[in-house]
Structures are given as structure tokens and as C-alpha cells.
């Protein structure tokens, strides 16, 4: 599903060049639930941004579902993001003046799905994250966990190939974190490919595979016994 070869990325900081990613190689198969771990500055967010087509790679190649991702203009990148990827952010990033349902329907709107169908689908996905009765509420009327669940519903609404989650539990207490992870596990159980960036050990162990980044290189890539989040909920 995701294929990365010899990926390099550096940033210019004034006169200094900061080499963030130093030749990464890895691939993710369909249906995997992968945690990318590392301390801050290890390059995990940069990696996620490149995978999410929010940032461009300097060297190497990136293939997503057989499509080479390179030299995209903004319009094309937007199309690919919409079609291939779902994003979940640490700070939820819901649009404040839109209701939960409108937020979930947004990616569908960009796909030019007709209004009625959009709303039906949005309600369906809100139902899946258990927030059907909150559909008409604005984000600031929801708790953190609820917001993240809306964000996950939104990410799933466009039926993407890969779900990218950047510290999805970073702003939540542990109980809510487990609820969110439970949800992510269940989505994975349905066969969706999910990438979770985290620095929390327990969250990482709820995935099936852990990729450890340090100073821009992969130091460890191992399969783990998945801990089900259900038991903590």
C-alpha cells in the first residue's frame, strides 16, 4: 500500500541545513496498523507530512497504492489527499462554525457528492463513532474525545486508502485515549490501513507493528502483539 525508498528530507534554517530524514526504507501492506514512534525531533511528523502529501520529499520515492507521488501541483495533491488519505490530528482541527455532521461531510463535498447523499453518509459515519445524536452540535459543544471521534469519522467519510493519525491521543486523558484507540482498532479490524504517529508506549503497543525513528533513521521495525484497547474502556 505504501512503499518508501531511500527517503531524504532536509529543511533550510537560515544558513544551516537540517537533515531530518536520512534515507528511510519501508513499506506498509494493506490492512496494517502501524505505529511510528520516536522522540521529538526524530522526524516522525515530517515523515507523516510527506506521506500525507502535505510536504514534498527531497530524494527517494514514495508510491501510494501503486501511484508514484511526486512533483504534484497543489490541485493534484488536493485531489490525491481527498481520494487516498484521511487525516486525524492531535488538535482535532474541526471547523468551528460547522456542525459535527457538516465537518464529517466536508471531504465528500470536495468530491462533489450531492448534498443528500453526503448527509446520509456523514450520519452513517457519525453513527459508527457513536455520535449520531450529536450531529447538529458545533465542535465547541463536544468534549475532546468526542471531537476526536468526529475527526475520525471525517477522515473515514471519504473512504480513504490510508488513515494517517498524528498523535491522535496527544490531547486526551488516558481513558479517552483508549476509547479513541479502540475505535481505531475497530476500523483496522475492518481492513483499513492505518498509520499512527505517537510517542506513548502504551498507545504504540495497541498497534500491530512499531517503527522506531531516531534522528532521521529507522532504528527498529518490529511486529508486536496487539493490546486491545477494549479492556481498558
Amino acid at each position: 500500500m505504501i512503499e518508501i525508498k531511500d527517503l531524504h528530507k532536509s529543511y533550510k534554517m537560515g544558513n544551516n541545513k537540517l537533515h531530518v530524514l536520512k534515507g528511510l526504507n519501508f513499506s506498509i501492506a494493506e490492512g496494517e496498523l502501524v505505529a511510528i514512534m520516536g522522540s521529538s525531533g526524530s522526524g516522525k511528523s515530517t515523515l507523516l507530512n510527506i506521506l500525507g502529501m502535505l510536504d514534498e520529499l527531497d530524494e527517494g520515492s514514495y508510491t501510494l497504492d501503486g501511484v508514484p507521488i511526486k512533483n504534484l501541483n497543489e490541485t493534484k495533491a488536493a485531489q490525491y489527499r481527498n481520494k487516498f488519505l484521511g487525516f486525524v490530528f492531535q488538535s482535532f482541527n474541526l471547523i468551528n462554525y460547522k456542525s459535527a455532521m457538516e465537518n464529517v461531510a466536508l471531504p465528500l463535498y470536495y468530491q462533489k457528492v450531492p448534498r443528500k447523499e453526503r448527509e446520509e453518509k456523514a450520519l452513517k459515519y457519525l453513527g459508527q463513532v457513536g455520535l449520531k445524536e450529536w450531529a447538529d452540535h458545533l465542535p465547541n459543544e463536544l468534549s475532546g474525545g468526542q471531537k476526536q471521534r468526529v475527526a475520525i469519522a471525517r477522515a473515514m467519510a471519504a473512504e480513504p486508502k490510508v488513515l494517517l493519525a498524528d498523535e491522535p491521543t496527544g490531547a486526551l486523558d488516558s481513558k479517552t485515549s483508549y476509547e479513541v484507540m479502540d475505535l481505531i482498532q475497530k476500523i483496522n479490524d475492518n481492513g483499513n490501513t492505518i498509520l499512527v504517529v505517537t510517542h506513548e508506549e502504551d498507545i504504540a503497543h495497541m498497534c500491530k507493528r512499531i517503527v522506531h525513528l531516531k534522528d532521521g533513521v529507522i532504528v527498529e521495525d518490529k511486529m508486536v502483539e496487539q493490546v486491545r484497547a477494549e479492556q481498558y474502556v
Binding site: A78, Q79, F87, N96
Partner: peptide, 16 residues
């Protein structure tokens, strides 16, 4: 800015 960023991450066409 942030909202525009979110919308673009969700795949809105810049022209839109």
C-alpha cells in the same frame, strides 16, 4: 489560515 489548511488537507481544490 488554519481552517484553510484543514480544508486543503481534506482535499479542497486551491481554486475553490
Amino acid at each position: 489560515t488554519k481552517e484553510i489548511g484543514i480544508r486543503r488537507a481534506l482535499g479542497e481544490d486551491p481554486w475553490s
